[in-house]
């Protein structure tokens, strides 16, 4: 078998493609784009919640939030590591993010207005991420699948800490309950948009599914998320802001309304509430850290020359 036949055979048998195997250029480029976009999302994703670390109401909540934000950094690094096995360069990917040539998840362009947002991000945003990511643990590219297994184990902590935080607030004052409902109202639709455009409007999906990089369509994953979340909202005592949301006996699934797709397009193309601030903050962090990276490299070089 030549490289192309071996690749086709590997995909057909549901085996994993490994770094030094022959692979079509389109497969490699699609993976680099997807993994980099995913890594960037984890790194930018530290910002909305990171803003609350110094304002967490108790030491316990602060320690939890700190650990969670540190995990997001870790997830970004697992993914950059996977991207490097495909020949991408970490420094180059960061430059592409800062220069706006590569994207990250639209969800992180929304502001976190109250501490309830920390809980809702854990519950809804990380919940949606889990729906997206669990099938990626079986992605055809080995290093990506292995990174996703690590990430999924840790995401479960993220979702549960968020839900527990919200349960605590719901047991508090009427003002605290209002804060939770307000945060749910603001994050629900952006969370549904995390699964991407509807299947009819997602041009690369079919190819990614044929290559088994992706296992389920955007709409299927969105439906799973809704089905999973509605009972959790009921248990929490909040209302999801969708008048069309109701149980469909025939389908044994929930019917729900259509997200505002023009909003998703707008946020993806750079015109969300905080796109500019998020990138500027990342650029600043990169610039502020430059002297540390240079000093460490100079120190390592000096140690080498002394030996």
């Amino acid at each position: 078998m030549n490289g192309e036949e071996t690749f086709a055979d590997t995909i057909a048998r549901d085996h994993r493609v490994e770094p030094r195997d022959w692979m079509p250029d389109g497969y490699r480029q699609t993976l680099i784009r997807q993994i980099a976009q995913h890594a960037h999302s984890e790194i930018i994703g530290m910002q909305p919640e990171g803003e609350w670390i110094t304002r967490a109401p108790t030491l316990r909540r602060k320690a939890i939030l700190l650990a969670k934000v540190q995990d997001e950094a870790g997830h970004g690094l697992y993914l950059y590591s996977a991207a490097e096995t495909l020949g991408a360069d970490r420094g180059d990917l960061t430059r592409r993010l800062i220069e706006g040539r590569q994207k990250y998840s639209s969800i992180f362009n929304y502001p976190t207005l109250s501490f309830a947002d920390v809980g809702v991000i854990g519950w809804l945003v990380d919940g949606a991420a889990i729906c997206n990511q669990v099938p990626l643990c079986r992605s055809s590219y080995g290093p990506y699948a292995r990174a996703m297994i690590r990430i999924c184990k840790e995401e479960s902590f993220h979702q549960r800490q968020g839900y527990e935080l919200l349960m605590t607030m719901m047991g508090g004052t009427p003002e605290q309950r209002d804060m939770v409902q307000d945060a749910v109202n603001r994050w629900w639709w952006p969370s549904l948009m995390m699964f991407g455009p509807p299947d009819g409007d997602s041009p690369n999906s079919a190819r990614s599914m044929a290559w088994k990089i992706k296992r389920h369509s955007n709409d299927e994953l969105r439906q799973r998320f809704v089905d999973m979340t509605v009972p959790q909202a009921e248990a929490l005592g909040v209302t999801l802001p969708d008048p069309q949301l109701r149980w469909n006996e025939e389908r044994s699934r929930y019917d729900f309304g259509e997200p505002e797709w023009s909003e998703l397009k707008r946020v993806i193309s750079g015109d969300g509430p905080l796109n500019r601030q998020r990138i500027e903050r990342r650029r600043q962090a990169d610039a502020d850290g430059a002297w540390v990276r240079e000093a460490a490299a100079a120190h390592a070089e000096k140690q080498r020359s002394r030996r």
């Binding site: 650990a67 995990d71 870790g74 590591s81 096995t85 290093p143 840790e154 140690q303």
Partner: peptide, 23 residues
């Protein structure tokens, strides 16, 4: 378990501790 970037071996071990053994 994966890879990481570091200036030298000593830093690589420290970063590996933070990145791959948080739990």
């Amino acid at each position: 378990v994966g890879s990481l970037r570091a200036a030298d071996h000593q830093m690589a071990v420290q970063h590996a501790r933070d990145l791959y053994t948080r739990r």
